[in-house]
Amino acid sequence: MSDEPRPQPPVPDRRWPRSVYGAGREPDVRFSLANERTFLAWIRTGLALLAAGVALEALEVPVHPGFRLAAAVVLLLLAVAAPAQAWWGWVRTERAVRCEEPLPAPVLGGPLAAGVLLAVLLLLAGTAAR
């Protein structure tokens, strides 16, 4: 891929944020497009978490109310964090691609997995404690 001509940056380059576009050189456009799709996947994940958190409380799922509320709070916290991960992940990845550095891991990857697991465990405990 490195032999192919790369897209040239616009002149003058006013693209924002400068912390991304001021670094490195124009990447293969496919990497930028893939990065954008990852961004969108995080946005969708956040929307799904929001719907799940709202549903738990609004449907009054028949488990212990305390455990149910705790599970809903965990899901809603993740729903708020997911768009933040979407943006910061996009910035860090775009920068790494431009600078041809190793790609950063998603900061929220671990917490998301742990949070969903915790929510499931809380609901299981809530079923037992009902």
Binding site: R15, G53, A86
Partner: peptide
């Protein structure tokens, strides 16, 4: 001219929607 503005707005909107819903 594609840059981060549209994405930042999208993320901000999603974040505010999640905050409001929560």
């Amino acid at each position: 001219g594609a840059d981060g503005r549209v994405l930042a707005t999208t993320a901000a909107v999603a974040l505010l929607a999640a905050l409001a819903g929560a």
